[in-house]
């Protein structure tokens, strides 16, 4: 199972003929992702070679989805065109099959483009947007699985821990921490570090709670906004599975953007301290150091009767 993306999900790549798109499409095929082709306007009819095999390219997402019955798409389109690429994918999934998952990796999309794109996607309830500015989503399988994004596939293994995070490399750190205590992952979702994005923490928590494979959750937040606080309050009422958490940016000064567009403390709001407090108030076990996430998770699993030793 895992959430939103099954191990054998059929995946398209938008921007597949570009440098980034082709590089990552190749890595995804190598991992075992069921890539069914890609879309680059003006290059329809061509093929791209991934891991020694040809994959078809379409001019539009409508054509691509009609031809392949894809379940998901991943976007590696440059920032000026990424907002529209999201909307094209959402429109096509909605019209052709009424559902689909759109994963946008692109970093640096103008915020107002995202405001428009997110509203567009929200008008199509069968379509889910993950990102932008995120590592993507991965559901490890038994030998392979569905890796939709830029994360290093080989660090993952199939298991029962769901991971949701705003950050890329910090997600990998969390994955390594679960592995260090002998636990694999059901699905890992990077929701991205932009101020306006698609899928949020609460969507992920709700899906993990409903997923039979997931037995515990790791939630990684960062400074800026109050999505973590809202998610913690929601989890307190709605999540029965153990959650462990970490928030990055306790040492970040106010008013400075820390890499991610969304990682900025404005008007004294959105600090790591507030977020840790909200986590603790919701019964989420917190690590103050990401290298301790494994130990904190192990403790939480024991407490919940999910581990013995």
């Amino acid at each position: 199972m895992g959430i939103w993306i099954e191990e054998n999900a059929k995946v398209l790549v938008q921007g597949i003929t570009g440098k980034q798109g082709m590089f990552h499409a190749d890595k995804m095929v190598e991992y075992g992702t069921n890539i069914v082709g890609g879309c680059t306007p003006g290059k329809g009819g061509q093929t791209v070679e991934l891991q020694g095999k040809p994959y078809p390219v379409w001019n539009s997402m409508f054509e691509a989805i009609e031809a392949t019955d894809a379940d998901a798409t991943v976007i590696y389109v440059p920032p000026p065109f990424a907002g529209e690429a999201i909307m094209e994918a959402a429109d096509a999934f909605d019209q052709v099959k009424g559902e689909g998952v759109v994963v946008c990796i692109t970093e640096g999309i103008p915020t107002l483009d995202m405001v428009k794109a997110v509203a567009f996607v929200e008008n199509r309830p069968g379509v889910r947007l993950i990102g932008p500015n995120c590592p993507g989503i991965i559901t490890p399988g038994d030998g392979g699985g569905a890796k939709i994004g830029i994360m290093p596939g080989h660090i993952h293994a199939k298991g029962r821990i769901g991971i949701v995070s705003k950050s890329g490399t910090l997600t990998y750190e969390a994955v390594a921490q679960t592995m260090s205590i002998g636990e694999g992952q059901s699905t890992c979702v990077g929701i991205g570090g932009d101020p306006v994005n698609g899928t949020g923490f609460i969507d992920c928590l709700a899906a993990f709670e409903a997923d039979s494979q997931t037995e515990a959750i790791v939630m990684i937040g960062e400074i800026g906004g109050n999505a973590e606080q809202e998610a913690a309050a929601w989890a307190k009422e709605n999540v029965t599975k153990p959650i462990v958490g970490f928030v990055a940016g306790a040492t970040a000064p106010p008013g400075k953007r820390m890499g991610h567009a969304g990682a900025i403390i404005s008007g004294g709001k959105g600090t790591a301290e507030e977020k840790f407090e909200a986590f603790e108030a919701a019964g989420i076990a917190c690590a103050k150091d990401p290298s301790e996430l494994g130990a904190v998770l192990l403790e939480a699993l024991k407490k919940a009767g999910l581990r013995n030793e």
Partner: peptide
């Protein structure tokens, strides 16, 4: 590498008694 990990690195330096000079 990575904004989230960069922030976390600063935090952990501070946690162990140091002071980060930069992000």
């Amino acid at each position: 590498n990575g904004a989230g990990l960069a922030m976390a690195t600063m935090d952990v330096i501070k946690l162990y008694g140091g002071e980060p000079a930069n992000f």
